[in-house]
Design a protein around this nucleic acid. Structure first.
Lengths: 252, 252
DNA sequence: GTCTATAACTAGATAGAC
DNA sequence: GTCTATCTAGTTATAGAC
């Protein structure tokens, strides 16, 4: 298939950008389902076939969305964190920055999420292909933690950026399903969860909790070894089923 | 138009069942994407148009899969729970029963999961359409809890079935992305998480945790009011709503 | 009013020429 | 890299049979 990743020439890169721009515009105007590949190609000034040269499928277009969102969040988070020293405050500021930059895309974020949720998808957040974006996102979380004055179990604090990234994924999951105006319910969830986070981290040093926390951290580490995702290969378990038969590759 | 819910006649119900059977067979044989509606109709011995009379879209066929999975899980869970009195044991038995009955569908469960993850999808587990299946699933969890001899905060115990259902969803999320043979990693996660669950429930009565637990329960209740999903338009497009016919709806 | 079937339409995706 | 022509399959319209 075509160069879904890095177009080779200067001109190609421009064309690719034009297609992403057109797609995002149309997604915002009329939503994902109502945006046809033909319309995207038209607005980008290319032929239908040419659009498919750059993007293997309509779903691949959401990759552009993902990258921009990611960058916008990082940019918005930095100033929002400035001057805050409480872990809970920094966490809230970070996630509110996300909710703010993401709000305009909420109407069609569900589709993006569904595409990303598929294990075999290159944009699934746990995949190897997504490692750069994931690492960038975890960097934001590391910033949240290191800039805070917190006391807590040392090992927990080390792992906290990764855990906050998981929490971020959870918040996004709620956000995507949140039909309340301005995603007010997700903001509520965030504000009222944050103090609990702070308190739990504080309690992590105390006797009754510490051993449980360590068990949990051990488990996370064990699961991570042998890679986060484990899948990726279309069907790594192509062994189980019938005898002959083709090797039907669910791919799409 | 399409009687997606309850076919009215005996014969209709049979036809509906034949279509579900055919669809599940084909999904197992060649996966979701490679199964066409035409093939489903053919195998079921009905016309294409007829298949659409019963199922509003290809995605709706997935609901049949969920219902059966659900029923199979309930059936497998009951004997597995018999004789166990420890909460952690019961929880593990319940979820292992799920992993066992679901294993054969794992190769294409990712696709189904992606379909279900979409907020506007009728099969998304938080939607109104899924309430029957969800309630049935929560009933299993209630069985897990009520059959156990546990001490814990009273309010927490009341909400525990709902919370365990959420935990179940989380396990499924991990399972879907788990490429290890026999989904071994998910089983590991389950076994090592269960004791923590038991301990946390036990600790929920103690001073440092109790107030946090109550705050969490309050939050969950608040989020649930105003409905679980918050979906835009559960199924408004199914019946002609108002004046004009066209109800442009971002079905996605 | 409850079902069933045929034909047509739309849009995602591919093939192959330039 | 880009195009035009074409294929495929989800979906809809509609006519008619129990």
């Amino acid at each position: 298939m075509p160069a879904a990743d890095q177009p080779t020439t200067e001109r190609g890169e421009q064309t690719r950008q034009r297609i992403v721009d057109a797609a995002l515009e149309l997604f915002e105007e009329r939503g994902y389902a109502k945006t046809t590949m033909r319309a995207v190609a038209d607005r980008a000034g290319v032929s239908l076939g040419n659009a498919y040269y750059y993007f293997g499928s309509k779903d691949h277009l959401v990759q552009g969305y993902y990258e921009r969102m990611q960058a916008a969040h990082a940019e918005a988070a930095r100033p929002a964190l400035a001057g805050r020293t409480l872990l809970a405050d920094r966490w809230v500021a970070c996630e509110q920055a996300f909710l703010d930059v993401a709000e305009r895309y909420h109407p069609f974020a569900g589709r993006f999420f569904a595409v990303a949720a598929e294990p075999s998808s290159p944009v699934n957040p746990f995949s190897d292909d997504s490692r750069p974006a994931r690492d960038a996102s975890i960097d934001i979380m590391r910033d949240v933690v290191t800039g805070a004055r917190v006391k807590g179990d040392a090992r927990l604090l080390t792992e906290l950026p990764d855990l906050l990234w998981l929490a971020h994924m959870g918040l996004v999951l709620h956000w995507v399903h949140d039909g309340s105006p301005g995603q007010r319910r997700t903001r509520l969830l965030l504000r009222r969860t944050a103090p609990l986070l702070e308190r739990l981290v504080g309690l992590s040093r105390l006797r009754p909790l510490r051993s449980s926390v360590h068990e949990l951290l051990d488990l996370v580490a064990d699961l991570r070894d042998g890679e986060l995702d484990g899948s990726d290969d279309p069907d790594g378990a192509a062994d189980a089923p019938g005898p002959a038969a083709a090797a039907p590759d669910e791919r799409d």
